[in-house]
Design a protein around this nucleic acid. Structure first.
Lengths: 97, 97
DNA sequence: TATTGTCTTGACAAATAGCGGCAAATATAA
DNA sequence: TTATATTTGCCGCTATTTGTCAAGACAATA
C-alpha cells in the first residue's frame, strides 16, 4: 500500500539518523509498528500524530494532512467511482466551510 | 449527520410507496436499520448496495458513488486539513488512473 | 379517545476490524 | 561471523460496526 505519511516519516527519521527503535520508544509503541507504518502496512492513530510531529520536529499540520490523505486514499483504493465521489465531497466540503 | 445516500433512498422508496418494512425485508435486515440509514444514523455495508439498487430499480453506480461520498464526508467531518487532503488525494487518484 | 399501522430510538449482543506486542526471519554492517 | 537494525507473521485484546429486539413517538382513522 502506498502511504504518503509513511514515506515522509522515513525521510525525516533517516535524515535525523534516528533508529526505528528510538522513534518507537518515544512514541511508546513497538519498533515493528513504526516499521509497518513507514512501509504502509499500518496506519498510525490520529492521536499519535501530534507527538510524532514533536519528536520529528515536523509541522503537525503537514503530517495530519498526509495522514488524512492516506485514509482517503485507502478508502478510494480500487473504487471505480472514486473520482465521482471525490468531486461530490469536494463540493460539499467547500459549501460547509 | 448528513447523508446523501440516505436521502436518495428515502426519495426512491417513498416515490415507490414502499414501506421501510418492505425494503428492509428484501435487504434482509431489521426495519430499524433502514430507518437509521435514511436518517444518517447508520451506514450500509458496501456489499449491500448492489442488492439495494436492484430492489429500488436504481442505478448501482449512482448509489455506490453516494455511499462512497458519505464515507469520505464522514472521515473529513471536522478536520481542519480536509481541503488540503482532498487536493492531494484527487491528484493521486488521477495519476493512478 | 382508542386503535391501528408506520417509523424512530435506545439498549444490548454478535461479528468484525484494527492496534500493539512478541518472536522469528531477514537484511545490513563491522 | 558477530552484532545490530529492520521486517514479517501471528496472536490477543479492544474498539467499532452491524444487527435484533422492544418500547416509544407519531399520524391517520374510526
Amino acid at each position: 500500500m502506498i502511504t504518503k505519511l509513511g514515506a515522509r516519516i522515513r525521510e525525516l527519521r533517516t535524515k535525523k539518523k534516528m533508529l526505528l527503535r528510538q522513534l518507537a520508544s518515544q512514541l511508546d509503541v513497538d519498533t515493528s509498528i513504526i516499521s509497518k507504518v513507514e512501509r504502509g502496512d499500518r496506519q498510525l492513530k490520529k492521536e499519535q500524530i501530534p507527538l510524532l510531529a514533536q519528536i520529528l520536529k515536523a509541522d503537525v499540520e503537514e503530517l495530519q494532512t498526509l495522514w488524512l490523505a492516506d485514509q482517503l486514499y485507502n478508502m478510494l483504493q480500487g473504487e471505480p467511482m472514486a473520482g465521482e465521489a471525490l468531486k461530490l465531497v469536494t463540493k460539499q466540503i467547500k459549501k460547509t466551510k
